[in-house]
């Protein structure tokens, strides 16, 4: 299914608060992996999360479109836009809430990427349909990247 007519399949990467360092590097890595598979990544995030991403990849070798988090939610909720895949970055209760929102308003195949000191407890709060990739990662992205690789399309 392609939800944006005329183009390749799309994937939303929904970034939360960039408080935990692994978020930015895993997001850029995931963009690369998705592009390898012919899937166009679209990043939505808070202002700080977007700036970290855009500064890390200034020529946009890996990232593609980058949009405001609230605008993205509005567009999906109002049926103006949707994605084939959605990856929600989760390290706190707010991240779980955003993933729950995507599960309700989007038809995308949803993956919750759970990380941080309390990854196990955070993952337990996911009670809606969602594939979960969880690792207690804060500075080392490798455990998360390895597990994420197992669920990529």
């Amino acid at each position: 299914m392609t939800t944006e007519t005329g183009g390749p399949p799309t994937a939303l990467l929904l970034l939360g608060c960039p408080q935990v360092p692994v978020q930015t590097s895993v997001a850029i890595h995931l963009c690369d992996q998705l592009r390898e598979r012919g899937i166009a990544p679209v990043i939505a995030g808070t202002g700080a999360a977007r700036r970290l991403i855009e500064i890390a990849d200034p020529k946009r070798h890996y990232i593609g479109e980058v949009i405001d988090l609230d605008l993205c939610i509005d567009q999906i909720a109002e049926h103006q836009r949707d994605f084939d895949h959605a990856y929600v970055f989760i390290h706190n209760d707010a991240g779980v809430s955003y993933a729950g929102t995507i599960s309700a308003i989007s038809k995308a195949r949803l993956v919750g990427i759970v990380y941080g000191e309390h990854a196990d407890e955070t993952a337990e709060a996911i009670t809606f349909p969602c594939d979960v990739v969880a690792a207690k990662a804060t500075h080392n992205p490798m455990p998360l990247v390895v597990r994420l690789g197992r669920v990529l399309p």
Binding site: I73, A77, S97, T101, A104, I105
Partner: peptide, 16 residues
């Protein structure tokens, strides 16, 4: 209500 419900002009965020 479901997440995404519009209240005061904003779409609500949350776990259903």
């Amino acid at each position: 209500v479901e997440p995404g419900y519009e209240l005061f002009g904003a779409h609500l965020i949350g776990v259903p």
